[in-house]
């Protein structure tokens, strides 16, 4: 299971990378593996504002549906439109081409509540 260094993680199996106050988020390798072949991602609109843990979209595989939750509060600045035609990117490159949205963080303090790589790895082991 790929759990890259330098990212934040949530118990809902989302990852977050923060650069200059802008976060990029997607689902983890573990989550994509659990869901199976991703066939659809429902994206929010750019400009939508969300609170931490808000449901901002939906991700679907052939036989499962999962809500997407934002790791932090903020405003959507960009969505990965490529996923509309190539949802399989989430399976193939969950941490790169399979990113889902970018958010302008409204409270960097929230980052403290998220897990780091080690903590998430431990969390996965406990879950199993």
């Amino acid at each position: 299971m790929n759990v890259p260094e330098g990212l934040y993680y949530t118990e809902d199996h989302e990852w977050l990378k923060v650069e200059n106050g802008v976060g990029t988020t997607g689902i983890t390798d573990f989550a994509q593996e659990e869901l199976g072949d991703i066939v659809f991602v429902e994206l929010p609109e750019v400009g939508d504002e969300f609170q931490q843990h808000d449901n901002f979209g939906v991700i679907e595989s052939v036989k499962a549906v999962s809500d997407l939750y934002l790791p932090v509060s903020g405003e959507i600045t960009e969505t990965n439109e490529k996923l509309l035609d190539q949802p399989e990117l989430v399976n193939d490159e969950p941490y790169q081409g399979g990113w889902i949205v970018k958010i302008k963080l409204s409270d960097e303090g929230e980052l403290d509540e998220l897990m780091n790589t080690e903590e998430y790895q431990e969390f996965l082991e406990e879950e199993a």
């Binding site: 066939v39 659809f40 679907e60 595989s61 052939v62 036989k63 499962a64 549906v65």
Partner: peptide, 12 residues
């Protein structure tokens, strides 16, 4: 596209 249907999406 069965994720539209009740056996997967249930109440939604």
């Amino acid at each position: 596209m069965q994720t539209r249907e009740q056996h997967i999406r249930r109440g939604k």
